[in-house]
Computed example of a mutant assay.
Amino acid sequence: MSAPTISYENHRFPPQVIAHAVWLYFRFPLSLRLVEEMLLERGIVVSYETIRRWGRKFGAAYAKQLRRKRPSREDIWHLDEVVVSIGGRNHWLWRAVDKDGDVLDEIVQVRRDTKAAKRLLIRLLKKQGLAPKRIVTDKLRSYGAAKRDVMPAVEHRSHKGLNNRAENSLCRCENENE
C-alpha cells in the first residue's frame, strides 16, 4: 500500500514554499513569527497563522515521508576509517554507511585498533537495534577481530574494492564542507 500524495490544491502558494515553511518550523526551534519573518526576507509575504495552518495540515504527512526505513536483518553495513587532524593531532574518523549510502554512525577516536573498531560496532548495534546480514570493510584487521567479539554470526567481507560505498560517502561529505 503506497502513501497518499500530499495535495496542495486550493493553496495560493507553491508547494515548495509551503514545504519550506513547514520544514523550518518543525526542524528548528523557531516560532511561527520567526518563520514568517524569514520568509518575508526572501520576499514571500505570508502570515504566521497561515504557517500554523500549514503545519497542522501538512506536518504529519511530511514527518511520515521523512521517517527513515526501519533496520532489517537484510541490511549491509560498509565500515571505513580515515585520519583527520583536530587541533594539530591526528584522530581517526570511523564511519558506518548502509547499502543506500546513508550514514548510520560516525565516531572520532584517538586510536585505530580493535578496541576502537569494537566500540563502533557496539554503538551501531545499540543504535540500529539488530545486526546486519553482512559488513563490508577495507583490509584493516581490527574489523575482523572486533566482529568476532561483538557479532560472530554476521558475514564479513574484507576487500579494498568492495568498500567503495563508505569511501564515496566520505568524499561526498568532504565536498559538501568545502
Rank of each mutant, 00 (worst) to 15 (best):
Y143W: 14
E176F: 09
E9M: 07
L170D: 01
S7N: 06
R123W: 02
M151T: 02
L130I: 05
L30R: 04
A117F: 02
E36H: 02
V150T: 05
N175Y: 03
V136H: 10
A63S: 02
P15M: 10
P4F: 06
W23Q: 00
L140T: 00
I86W: 05
P4S: 14
L170H: 15
P15F: 10
E155S: 08
G161H: 13
R134Y: 01
T137M: 07
K139C: 10
N168Q: 15
V110L: 12
R134N: 11
R68T: 10
H156W: 13
Y8H: 13
Y143V: 06
V108G: 04
R12W: 10
R67D: 02
T50Q: 09
I6M: 14
R53L: 10
G88W: 12
E106H: 03
L140R: 01
R42K: 13
R56M: 00
P15K: 11
R33W: 03
L121T: 03
T137G: 04
H78P: 11
T114E: 08
A117Q: 00
S142D: 06
P29L: 07
L40M: 08
L40D: 11
E178T: 10
H78L: 13
V136F: 09
V110E: 12
L39K: 01
A145G: 07
H156P: 03
R134M: 15
Q65D: 09
R89C: 11
I44Y: 04
V108N: 10
T5N: 08
Q128T: 11
C171P: 00
A131P: 12
R112V: 05
A146I: 03
L121F: 07
A166Y: 06
G55V: 02
Y143H: 05
C173L: 09
I122H: 01
P71N: 10
I44Q: 03
L120P: 04
I44M: 05
L125H: 08
R67V: 05
A21N: 04
N164K: 09
G101T: 04
M1A: 05
L104E: 07
R89D: 15
L162D: 13
R67W: 05
S169M: 06
R89Y: 11
E167K: 14
N90D: 15
R165V: 15
A153H: 15
H91P: 03
L66Y: 04
V82Y: 09
L124F: 09
V108W: 06
G129S: 02
R111A: 04
K133V: 00
W94L: 09
K126W: 12
H91W: 14
R70M: 06
L162I: 05
L121V: 09
E81Q: 09
R70D: 02
K57V: 07
Q65S: 07
A96Q: 06
V84F: 08
L24A: 08
R56W: 00
Q65L: 14
G144S: 14
L120T: 03
S72W: 01
S47C: 10
R148E: 14
F13G: 00
K160M: 08
R119P: 00
A166Q: 06
V150F: 12
H78I: 11
N168H: 13
F28D: 12
V22F: 01
Q128W: 02
R112P: 03
Q65I: 10
V110N: 01
L34Q: 14
L39Y: 06
S72L: 06
R172F: 12
D102E: 15
S47F: 00
A61G: 00
R53I: 04
L140P: 01
